[in-house]
Design a protein around this nucleic acid. Structure first.
Lengths: 141, 141
DNA sequence: TATATATTTAACGTCAACGTTAATTATATG
DNA sequence: CATATAATTAACGTTGACGTTAAATATATA
């Protein structure tokens, strides 16, 4: 299992080292293991998660605060799916799942709104592009 | 032709008055006519343009600086399309049009990248949603 | 026309999301 | 193993995008 140092992660994810430490500081990113000397050692899972975070942030336009909720929800779902957290009582479990369902449903709703809006903007931009093309065609030689 | 005051515009566009003045200040919005007393009087065109700006900004994730370039290009195209700016020489005209073409083509490219990314994020979110649904179904009564 | 409400400019304040710097310690390399 | 390069924490700095306040007009309304 390979290890990556912070600069490797930064380059692969297109972020700065400061940003990565900052994300860890505010609890957006899992703290990685450390070497004996204290150097952060990342795994591929960290890199993948970081990429997902920046991707989601970019398309959703969320603040880092909002991203924490987003990430928190998806982590809970991942944990559950891997078989952890199976010890609580039924009512508690159901309640938590229903809350997760509502959160993720809301996220889907936001995403779909974004999709609709971006389609609209694309349409308007496309029209502009065609106008420029037309103007170029109509230019006398 | 109706006139709107800044608070009407703010409400319809979902912005604050400060934001609208700020956009005008940095040249993102055309300065509207004023009453004799100095009160800003907006037309429907202003409102429509402002809505387009906020829409595009939201989906593209542009900074206000980047939006200026975006708006500047679309304004040039609109002017041209309405028959202004027809007096320069052919080479100059062609050069400008080619530059506009490149700018708008780039915008389309960015939009399509966004669309691809958002589709990816939607897919992952959808998977999470299904997992929650599944977990709810598998809950013993 | 008096008065309440809204608008204007100017200036300073704020907050998120990092950037930058410095001093210190780790790790890699000839 | 010496030394160059990289990582760490801590702290202060910066920047974009407005918020807020104040003092002076303008506009709307009883």
């Amino acid at each position: 299992m390979e290890n990556y140092k912070i600069d490797d992660v930064a380059k692969e994810c297109g972020l700065t080292k400061r940003t990565i430490r900052y994300y860890e500081e505010i609890g957006l990113l899992f703290a990685p293991d450390r070497s004996d000397g204290g150097t952060r050692l990342y795994s591929r899972a960290h890199i993948d998660q970081l990429k997902q975070i920046t991707n989601a942030r970019e398309v959703l336009g969320f603040s880092l605060q909002e991203m924490q909720d987003y990430v928190s929800a998806s982590n809970k779902i991942a944990e559950r799916h891997q078989g952890y957290l199976q010890t609580e009582d039924r009512d508690q479990k159901r309640k938590e799942l229903l809350e997760l369902e509502s959160i993720v449903a809301h996220q889907l709703q936001i995403i779909d709104q974004k999709l609709a809006k971006i389609a609209e903007v694309r349409q308007m931009t496309e029209v502009r592009y065609q106008r420029v093309q037309e103007a170029l065609k109509n230019l006398p030689e």
